[in-house]
Computed example of a mutant assay.
Amino acid sequence: MTKIVAALRSSPDELLQSALEAKTQAEAKVRALGEQRAVKLLEIDGVEEIAALDKQIAAAAAAVGIHADRITAFRGEVRRQQQQAADRDSAERVAATETALCERDATAVKLETAIVDMGRLYFELIDQNLAISRMWRMSAAALRTGLLGEALIARETSQAMFAAGRPRNGVSRLPAPGNVGLGITGDTNTGTLAERIATASSDLLEMIRGVPSTLPDDEAA
């Protein structure tokens, strides 16, 4: 009963190692008994001893076979548990990725809104400057003083965007405006920024769910 309880408490890896050691010991016993039998064969007497050695050799050889079978069984159990662990890990990573993609989609919506707001507010500021400048016949110096010229606002906006772009070695990481794939007017039939990112999230999640869980190399083999 004590051995059964101890076995239940042992992991398949531990049981596999024990079986490997037991098989090695049994094989060594077979060799040692075989050497004893060879010596006895050179003697005139000792038939009964040889017969006894034969029984011991047969028992030891049977033990080798049993240990080999147990090794195969334990290796299978180790592999099964590894597969279960890999499946759990894969499921957890898929779930974590799905959560991360949902958060990314929400960020994309905020970013798209911020970009739209920026364009609207930029031209709203330009229009306000024009309205103010039309109230007076301002000199170039007055326009510079009040930051009323569009070029001046463009410079200030550009500098603010550069600072927001996490510059590194004098280079901003914010992308420059571009219309590749959008045509001259900037219209697109592929959806807005947030919609394209949401579609990409869905496609990526479907791809990830189709990836089989992988197992580490069988070190016990």
Rank of each mutant, 00 (worst) to 15 (best):
L205N: 04
R104G: 08
A154H: 09
G183H: 02
A7W: 02
M135Q: 12
L152E: 12
V78K: 05
D187L: 13
P177M: 14
L101G: 02
A194F: 05
V64D: 03
G183E: 04
A200L: 03
A51I: 06
D45K: 12
E21R: 06
R168C: 08
E103M: 10
A32W: 10
Q83A: 15
A163M: 09
A198H: 11
S10C: 05
V5Q: 03
A7L: 09
I184W: 04
F123W: 15
G34R: 00
E219P: 00
A140I: 05
G65W: 08
G119I: 06
L125H: 07
A140G: 11
K23N: 09
W136M: 10
A164M: 07
V78A: 05
P12A: 03
S90Y: 06
E92N: 03
D69P: 00
R9H: 10
L215W: 08
S213V: 05
S139H: 01
A200K: 00
T145V: 03
I197L: 15
W136Y: 15
S10H: 06
Q36W: 04
D217C: 04
N169R: 13
E35R: 10
I44D: 10
G191T: 08
R168Q: 14
R196E: 05
I71G: 00
L42G: 15
D187T: 15
E21N: 14
A151R: 14
M161G: 04
E49W: 07
R104V: 14
E124I: 09
M135C: 10
Q159R: 14
K29F: 01
Q83H: 14
M138N: 02
I208T: 03
E124T: 12
K3G: 03
S172L: 11
S10W: 00
P177I: 09
K40N: 06
Q17K: 13
P212Q: 13
E124Y: 12
L205T: 03
D54Y: 02
M118T: 13
L193H: 13
G183L: 06
R70S: 07
L205S: 03
L33F: 02
K3E: 07
E112I: 10
F123M: 14
R104E: 13
T24G: 07
A52K: 07
L152G: 08
N179P: 07
M1K: 04
I50G: 07
S158D: 11
I66G: 00
T199C: 10
E219R: 09
R80M: 06
D69C: 03
G146R: 01
L143C: 01
M207C: 11
L204T: 11
L16H: 01
E92W: 02
Q159S: 14
D13L: 05
A100P: 01
R93M: 09
K55I: 11
Q25M: 10
K55N: 14
E92S: 04
D218I: 03
I44M: 09
